[in-house]
Simulated assay, not measured.
Amino acid sequence: MSPSFTFRGPALFSYGFRPFFLAATLFALGVIPLWWLVWTGRVALASPLHPTDWHIHEMIYGYGAAVVAGFLFTAVPNWTGRLPTRGWPLAGLLALWLAGRLAVAGVFGLGALATALVDQAFLLAVAAMIAREIVAGKNWRNLKVLVPVSLLWLANIAYHAEAALAGTAWHGHRAGIALLIFLILLIGGRIVPSFTRNWLVQRGATALPVPFSRFDGLSLAGGALALVSWVAAPESLATAVLCGLAALLHLGRLARWRGHATWRSPLLLMLHLAYLFVPLGLAAASAAALALTTEATATHLLGIGAIGGMTVAVMMRATMGHTGRPLVAGPLLTAAFGLTLLASLLRAASDLMPGGPALSALLWTAAFALLALRLGPALSLPKTARRHPSSLAPKG
């Protein structure tokens, strides 16, 4: 290995997934118990945001944005063939992320405008650095990844603006979730069938996931239209129709990836199960538009189930593969994933279960305690001697 490729700093800052996956895991572990204390009136934050707005904002732009950054700063070098962002630039990005969390929680005592300025800096820096790497590597086909990331940055600014002007950020809640869901449709629709195909080929299977086709393009377009309608008018008939159709499209898309054949590989099956919560959440959004259920049901199926489940599955796979460990979930990681999905189902059904929110928060916290226990050392310590193929994103 050439000296120019050797990183001699702390292992935590040797690759993009390490600091951001660790930060996301620890943040998710602590922020939900804190939210429970805020929600029950035991703790008061000095945040310029309403407590509910703070909670939703931090799950999207705190936890979600950290996982997105960790994924992209690891996947993009794989796509471009360039060295990953390391060392002080990575530490600086982590500091920007942390400053945003403290500012939004009211720790700095800033007003609404100053808080928004501090908070938006992280996603702006992520988008700029990703754009630089893709352009420098002339990897033009992946420039499309910048669109949802840039939109997520703009949505964060709009979130703060809506909260300041309207008193709450109802559209902002849905916009942030919708953009993360679209990233799952875009990136998950690439990695899930690719990893499944590779695994099945290694085992001599002849029935493989269907390659990307016009149906996938139709599914992405249908999903985008449904999400836009849900953000703009969640109670409209158009939303009911579009979300219902999108749910069917993505259920069909998922069925083409042969997830049922991966039951022997929990780490792979997790990706399929997490994606399943996208059509479940879209179906719930359709039902909510017809007043058959509440919007909170759709929000938590999409937010905890799809986003939480997919991010947990991706962090597991990337961490194990990129730190030289076998791509095996084991009992702790399998339990953590299961608890995450169960937390989503319980929270979505909380209208029928008075104790659902409390139990859901407990399960989420337990899930991330297991993740921190299992992934924490792998993320913060040097890579093991054993090497494994890239497990985060296919090349291209």
Rank of each mutant, 00 (worst) to 15 (best):
S2H: 13
T6P: 03
G16S: 06
A23T: 10
L29T: 07
I32V: 15
W36Y: 12
G41V: 00
R42I: 08
L45F: 04
L49F: 11
D53L: 03
I56R: 03
A69P: 01
L72P: 01
R82T: 11
W88P: 08
P89C: 05
A95L: 15
A99C: 12
A99N: 14
G106Q: 10
G106F: 02
G106S: 02
V107P: 03
F108A: 13
G111S: 11
L113G: 09
L113F: 15
T115M: 04
L117N: 05
A125E: 01
V126L: 15
I130D: 10
A131C: 08
E133L: 09
I134C: 01
V135Y: 14
A136E: 09
P148F: 05
W153S: 02
L154P: 08
L154K: 02
L154Q: 05
A161F: 01
A164H: 11
T168W: 11
G176C: 06
V192H: 02
T196I: 14
W199C: 05
F212K: 10
L218R: 13
S219N: 08
G222F: 12
A226G: 15
A246T: 13
L251F: 15
G252Q: 10
G259D: 09
H260F: 09
W263M: 02
P266W: 03
H272T: 00
Y275Q: 05
V278C: 06
H300S: 05
L301C: 00
L302E: 00
L302K: 05
G303M: 07
I304T: 14
T311H: 13
M316Y: 15
M316S: 14
R317D: 10
A318Q: 03
T323C: 06
L327R: 11
T334S: 15
F337E: 01
A348E: 14
S350Y: 00
M353N: 00
L370P: 02
L375N: 04
G376N: 12
R387E: 12
P389S: 05
L392S: 03
